[in-house]
Each structure stands twice: as C-alpha cells, then as structure tokens.
C-alpha cells in the first residue's frame, strides 16, 4: 500500500515534468498552428545552461535563473529567424525545418560543451528526503518539482484568464486577422507566445538536470511523450495538457511498477517480466489510442 502511494507520487512527478513541456508545445501548436519538433531542444538548452551556470557559481538558483532566459531568448530568436517563414507553409515543411533544428542544436551542444554528459547535482537544501506519509520517504527534490509545476499551472491560468496579454493571445488564436484588425500586434504576440513556450521547456530541462544525464539529444526522449500528452489532452488546450500529462505520467509509472506483479499472477515470472516490460512501454500509446476512439479531439479540447 505504501509502495502504491510512492508510485503515485512518482507518476505525479513525471506528469508535472510532462506538463511543463506540453504546456509550451500545445500553446505553439494550438495558437500558432505550427508543428514544432524542436521543442525538446529548448529543454536541452535549459539543462545545459543550468548545469554550466550551476557548476560555475555553485548555486542551483542562479543556474535556474540563467536557464530560463537562455531558453526563452533562443526560442524567440528561432521564431524570428526560422518559424516566421513557416506559418503560411504546410505542416510537412514545418516538420522538416524543425527536425533540422533538432540536429542543429544537438550538434551545437556537442561543439560547445563536448561529447561527455555534464554533471548537475541536486542542491544541498533539497538533497534529503521527506516523509509525507509515515513510512514513505520521498526525495525532497521531486516534491519541489511537483510544487513548481503546480505553481506554473496556476500562473498560466491567471495569465490567460486575468490579463490583457492572455486575452490577446486567446483572441489571436481564435481569429488571427480579426485580432490584427483590432490593433493587436500579432507578430510580436507570436514571438512572445513562442518565448513563453520555450521558457517552460527550459524550466523543465533545468529541473530535470539533477535527475537525468545532461547530454546532447536528451530532448528527444521526452518529446515523444510530450506529443502524446497534447494529443490526449486536446491540441491547444492548457487544461488538456495538464490532464493529459498527469494521466500519461500515472499510466506510464504505474504500468512499469505494477504490470509485472499483475502478470505474475497468471504466468511464470520470467515470461511475465518479459511481457510486462513490453506492455509497459506500450501503455501510454494504448491510452492514446483509447482516448482518441472515445474523444477524437482529446479530453479537453481548446475550442468548445
């Protein structure tokens, strides 16, 4: 039972990480109608810059503070230089161009930082573990990740419902020409939205740094799950991204944790482990298929 609670927490933490990634991606996808495969690259840039600054200054907070603008600025520069030329083109062109960006950024990190993975550690004040429920020690750092994710969710909600910029973004999403005619600077707005999306990716990257290997190509492994999340949640919907991310995080984690035990009830252990390993890696895709059959536009679609 305690193990179950711990695994739920693990699932939530993975879900929060996916939420940070998918919130940015779904904004770009839903509002700007651009398929951006290079989203994982901004996650990687966040992690690399965070790891470098943390190593130089010894301060994790400074590392985070440096990673966020680095990812956001890189994102905005990419938007101005590359993506602006792609809004009117079809999705295949966008896929090709942003796939090229992935290779560009992977090679760039190898040139700048070398081939070895970088080191980044959990800050000392988050290094221990906390007993949220007696008998379940849980790493403080992962709890901090969950807290930051919830905070970001609340801030995004406030941004979109309570501020003028949020209103303009929503207006730009529903009808680009009309919003432009009413005097909203759509170009600037798109650049800002893209910057916000990459900022969130950078935040996810720098928070993943202490848990994962900071290495070239680290963005691709999370990118696929991120796309699954926004498809499940409904493209363009932040609420959908949150729901989808938590669902995917939980299904993936609980599948990996409990499928072997479940299958052992029916098969020999060796066979059960093999089948469970394969089933667990399929679980999120099965989930996606099931959601799409049930609600083809995702759980919480953006418009209506």
């Amino acid at each position: 039972m305690l193990l179950f609670v711990e695994q739920i927490l693990n699932g939530l933490q993975l879900g929060i990480m996916l939420f940070l990634m998918s919130a940015g991606l779904t904004l770009v996808f839903g509002i700007m109608q651009v398929i951006n495969l290079a989203h994982g690259s901004f996650y990687m840039i966040g992690a690399y810059v965070g790891a470098t600054v943390t190593a130089q200054t010894g301060s994790f907070v400074l590392g985070c503070l440096a990673a966020l603008p680095a990812a956001a600025l890189t994102g905005m520069v990419v938007e101005i230089l590359v993506l602006r030329r792609l809004y009117e083109r079809d999705h295949l062109d966008q896929v090709l161009a942003t796939f090229g960006l992935i290779m560009f950024f992977n090679e760039l990190t190898r040139i700048v930082w070398g081939r070895q993975p970088l080191f980044m550690d959990v800050p000392a004040w988050l290094a221990g573990s906390v007993e949220l429920i007696p008998g379940v020690p849980y790493p403080s750092y992962r709890i901090a990740v969950i807290a930051v994710g919830i905070l970001v969710g609340v801030l995004l909600y406030l941004l979109f419902t309570r501020t003028r910029t949020g209103m303009q973004i929503r207006a730009g999403a529903s009808n680009r020409e009309m919003a432009g005619a009413l005097g909203v600077n759509i170009r600037l707005l798109y650049t800002l939205v893209f910057g916000l999306g990459t900022l969130l990716a950078g935040l996810a990257g720098v928070m993943a740094g202490p848990i994962l290997a900071v290495e070239s190509g680290m963005g691709e492994s999370i990118l696929i799950l991120t796309f699954v999340v926004i498809v499940i949640g409904g493209i363009g919907s932040i609420r959908g991204a949150l729901a989808g991310a938590l669902l995917v995080g939980l299904v993936d984690t609980l599948g990996r944790a409990f499928l072997p035990l479940l299958l052992r009830l029916f098969f020999s252990p060796a066979y059960a482990d093999g089948v469970a390993a394969s089933l667990a890696s399929m679980s999120v895709y099965l989930l996606m298929a099931a959601v799409l059959v049930w609600r083809p536009r995702g759980l919480l679609p953006a418009h209506g």
């Binding site: 711990e6 699932g11 933490q13 609980l254």
Partner: peptide, 17 residues
C-alpha cells in the same frame, strides 16, 4: 529481474519497486 525501456530516463518507479 527487470527489463526497462531502451533509452528510459526516469527510474523512480523501478527504484521504488
């Protein structure tokens, strides 16, 4: 005896088990 996904990055579930 646990076989994980190739290229997996998060091992929290496996470590708890």
């Amino acid at each position: 005896e646990v076989y994980t996904k190739l290229g997996q990055s998060d091992y929290a579930a496996e470590i708890a088990a």
